[in-house]
Amino acid sequence: MLVDTRWNAWNEEITVQVTEGAALAPAARRVGALIAEAESASSLRRGDAEIHAVNLAQGRPVRVSASLARLLRSALWVARMTDGAVGPLAVEPPPSGVPSIHPEPTFEDVRIDDATVHAPYGAYFDITGTAKADTVGRAAILVAGDLECGVLVRIGAVVATGGHPPAGGWQVGLPGNTSIELSPGAALATAAAPDRDPDDVLPGAWTQVTVVTDDAVGAYGAATAALRRGVGAVSWLQEQELAARLVDRAGRVHTTSAWQHPHAA
């Protein structure tokens, strides 16, 4: 029996589905606890979030919790995986008319030793997207292991599954009234372009990119990077051997060869 619950947290809709009715309440509690932990560590919208101490350090090493250190490492891994297309840093602009005396920092300038973060002056972290994806993946693994049931966890547009699937598999809806079946242990992420004036969009830009892989952080990073790569996205995804579905501005659907897998059709 497949049962689910939904609620809003971290500025997203959260969904938890499990294959055992008795597991739903404890599964939701575990997912909720992981979300609260990650949000308190990394959310820029929270004045008490731990990440503010890192952003205020400006060149000084900062010791952080194990939770934030893990989330920062995930964000740096995505930056390396995407050649910087999806990075953890935003650079604070200097005051108007005042040139900066410091070089612009990049993710390659950031180092994490154990739980101490070393970031250069001018570095400002925003790891919201990768933190949510990391939490989705961890939640699916935790619930499946602790409760010995099949589980699907969704935070916004990132989905991860764990344990044994329900009869008929995990059916996941995509924008545009379509759906796919996710294999056990698989993850999915969809990156969508903001609504813009069609005359202001470069030809070949994508309205959405969906990637299926075995890791939620990797799926989020690849989908977001592909959306930003524009016309070069398909070849890049092919090189990475990723299952991906892209929708262009005319509504045409493009897929990579790996998308032909029966669980991602």
Rank of each mutant, 00 (worst) to 15 (best):
A144R: 00
A123N: 00
P105V: 01
P95C: 05
R70K: 11
T128F: 13
A85G: 04
Y121D: 02
I127G: 12
A167Y: 08
T130R: 07
C149V: 14
R138S: 10
L142M: 11
V86D: 09
V153D: 01
A90S: 13
D83G: 15
G122C: 09
H102M: 02
A49T: 02
T82I: 06
T161S: 07
V64R: 03
G84A: 13
G150L: 07
R80S: 15
G129M: 04
S42F: 02
R111G: 06
P120C: 11
F125D: 02
L89N: 05
E148K: 08
L44T: 12
A160C: 08
V158W: 00
L142I: 02
E92Q: 13
G47I: 11
T130Q: 10
L68Y: 05
A85F: 00
A85S: 09
A75K: 12
P120V: 01
W77C: 06
L89G: 05
G173S: 09
R73Q: 13
A160H: 05
I141P: 01
T128W: 14
D126A: 04
G87I: 00
V153A: 04
G150T: 02
G168M: 13
D83N: 15
A49P: 05
E108L: 15
I51S: 03
E50W: 13
G87F: 01
V91I: 13
A157M: 05
R154W: 06
V117H: 06
G168H: 11
V62C: 06
A57V: 08
G122W: 02
F125C: 04
V159A: 14
H118E: 12
G145Q: 14
P93A: 03
G137P: 02
G176W: 00
P166M: 03
T135K: 08
A123Q: 03
L147H: 05
Q171V: 15
W77T: 13
R45L: 13
A167F: 15
N55T: 02
L142V: 06
R63N: 08
